[in-house]
Design a protein around this nucleic acid. Structure first.
Lengths: 193, 193
DNA sequence: GAAAACATGTAACCGGTTACATGATTCT
DNA sequence: AGAATCATGTAACCGGTTACATGTTTTC
């Protein structure tokens, strides 16, 4: 049910179409949550049927139209309820560490390549998150700016602080993964002289 | 297809029954990969049909029997091939950080409770992984001891080193998550005086 | 004798992925 | 005029979860 709440969180900013939401998942929130359009459109329909959001057809060009969804009071209540409910943590399922535990079965070159890919993956994430923080600082993150425009002044500090806190955590994690994989390459080299 | 390879990795130690494998998932490997029995038994059947493992009914008590699976040459080749193939990293889907980014929507107490649960979750993982390393050092990890008994002497160092490397990475991650959530509690306190 | 552990499955469901499908609008 | 983007879906599939179901053996 996290997709539903990710969608609700975005609709607390302003009404959006399925395509708008899809694009946001491809960029800003996409680094914390991702969903393909094929999952978003049906979910929006279900949410509308359940009264969490209301859809409205708005004209788009001479003949086209698009459906814009706005969060309802019920939707806000649902989102807040989710935010106040503790998560239940899923059992671990971590292919990268599963493979790392059995690297003696790989050849040295592919093993190192695996570690390099791990580094590249987390370096890309790191760069994106650092970019998010720098956008926040410069006020160039449009989703955040629009959110702040609809937020009471005394709440704005918290809104920014929690987002920064989140990104900082993700940055620390990415850095740790890069460090780990770097040590992995050293280890592979040491064991395969 | 990681379940399949997790099963293969365990069967490189020695032949096992579905229940044996299920128990191992509940304990040692379970902290890197988890699977319920309802997923293990059908997967073993498919793997047998594909020739990756061979099953043999062995008597169990006066009337019972159990099916013991051994990895085949084909299975070993498949596992090695997987180990030599780079992973493709799935798009992020991280409910804990998704929620953290919107903590201004939660009440302070539930928000802190969330952070405490995050700490408790990762502290439990941390303890399990530290225990694994201490078992390795004392030679009391029976899966590993059995694996080493079937490993050529010149390979034993690598086998141990990669497992230690894996656990150390997971320990570092757990410590970082605990630190992050601790900062989160401080932040919530600061914003809600 | 009862409880715990061993042993093996099936079935319904759910969230998510991939592939397929279509058409309008805007930009160059 | 053609390409890129906007817009919205359906359908098959897949990995994983939860619930249900059953029987044997070992341990206390």
């Amino acid at each position: 049910m996290s997709l539903r709440n990710a969608l609700l969180s975005l609709l607390t900013v302003e009404p959006m179409t399925g395509y708008d939401l899809y694009k946001v998942f491809e960029t800003s929130v996409g680094h914390v949550w991702h969903a393909p359009d094929s999952q978003i459109y049906p979910e929006l329909k279900r949410m509308e049927a359940e009264g969490l959001i209301t859809g409205q057809d708005v004209p788009w060009g001479p003949r086209g139209k698009k459906r814009q969804y706005a969060i309802t009071e019920e939707g806000i209540a649902e989102f807040k309820a989710w935010m106040n409910t503790p998560l239940d943590y899923a059992r671990t399922r971590d292919p990268a560490h599963l493979k790392a535990a059995y690297l003696e079965w790989a050849q040295p070159e592919p093993a190192k390549e695996q570690m390099r890919a791990h580094i590249a993956h987390h370096q890309a994430l790191l760069a994106q998150w650092q970019e998010k923080i720098s956008e926040m600082e410069q006020g160039t993150n449009s989703m955040l700016e629009r959110r702040l425009a609809n937020t009471e002044p005394e709440q704005q500090e918290a809104t920014i602080a929690y987002k920064r806190f989140t990104y900082e955590g993700l940055i620390a994690r990415a850095e740790a993964e890069i460090q780990w994989a770097t040590r992995g390459i050293e280890l592979i080299n040491r064991l395969n002289p």
